[in-house]
């Protein structure tokens, strides 16, 4: 589904990603871990198409197409979803209106019939339930005045609404108390099918108690330096990163 080969990216003249290789197939869950400043969020942003970063080398194909050539919105319409680490507030734009436009644009791109108002409302109610989000929240402005937990639940609600092929969740667990973490993680697990894939970027093993990964990768200084199965996350939790990164320190 996603194939990343030797990806390099910079912001200004500072190189942040220094040759990432990653293969993600349908039905898989990948976790990307690593110390602060290793390039995890940059990797997510580059895949989503954030123009702040320049790709200097490498290839990314998504469902057989060259991802790097597509504008941000086409990546989304092809089925790539980014759960933001810091969801943005949009004053005056209600969640319902925002999702109505997003769903409509994505369906149009895929040549699907537009949803009727009743179908859309039913879908919103169903998807709110996935993350135990009060449906009343959808008539509030996007993320405005939402608590940290509500913002992250709202990201997963949007993921449920858009039913992406590949979801990249950038530190969706940061700033969550244990109940919100459980709700968010359970939501992600409910949305998992054999046809979609998830990449979770996280600092903490605790998220992986709920979202069990097939692969765990350690990102350090812009490269994946080690990969393993879910036991790697437990080992990292116990022993930290030192045993892995010593060889790479300058």
């Amino acid at each position: 589904m996603l194939s990343v080969k030797n990806l390099h990216a910079s912001v200004g003249d500072k190189e942040i990603l220094r040759g990432i290789d990653l293969e993600v197939r349908a039905g898989e869950v990948h976790a990307i871990m690593g110390p602060n400043g290793s390039g995890k969020s940059t990797f997510a942003s580059v895949l989503a198409g954030n123009e702040k970063f320049t790709v200097t080398e490498g290839e990314v194909s998504f469902l057989g197409r060259n991802l790097l050539e597509m504008p941000i919105e086409d990546r989304a319409r092809e089925g790539l979803f980014l759960g933001f680490q810091y969801p943005v507030e949009i004053p005056g734009v209600t969640m319902a209106n925002f999702m109505k436009m997003a769903v409509a644009e994505q369906r149009k791109y895929r040549g699907e019939e537009p949803l009727t108002a009743a179908e859309f409302l039913r879908m919103m109610r169903e998807k709110c339930a996935v993350v135990e989000l009060d449906p009343k929240m959808t008539s509030r402005a996007v993320n405005e005045g939402f608590s940290g937990g509500e913002k992250k639940k709202n990201e997963i609600f949007q993921m449920a609404m858009l039913a992406p092929k590949l979801s990249i969740l950038d530190e969706t667990d940061s700033g969550l108390d244990i109940d919100a973490l459980r709700i968010v993680a359970t939501g992600v697990t409910k949305l998992k099918t054999a046809d979609n894939a998830t990449v979770v970027i996280t600092h903490y093993q605790r998220l992986l108690d709920y979202i069990v990964p097939d692969y765990v990768h350690v990102l350090y200084k812009g490269r994946i330096i080690h990969s393993g199965d879910k036991s790697l996350a437990l080992k990292l939790e116990r022993e930290g990163y030192d045993w892995l990164i010593n060889d790479y320190k300058e």
Binding site: I72, R77, P87, V93
Partner: peptide, 28 residues
Amino acid sequence: DSDAVLYMRQRGLSEDAARRLQIEGFVA
């Protein structure tokens, strides 16, 4: 707010639609 435009585009809105929605929201 360019971050808001980016956020809306990541959900599949075109850049024009994202800008307009933001201005509409501003005066709404």
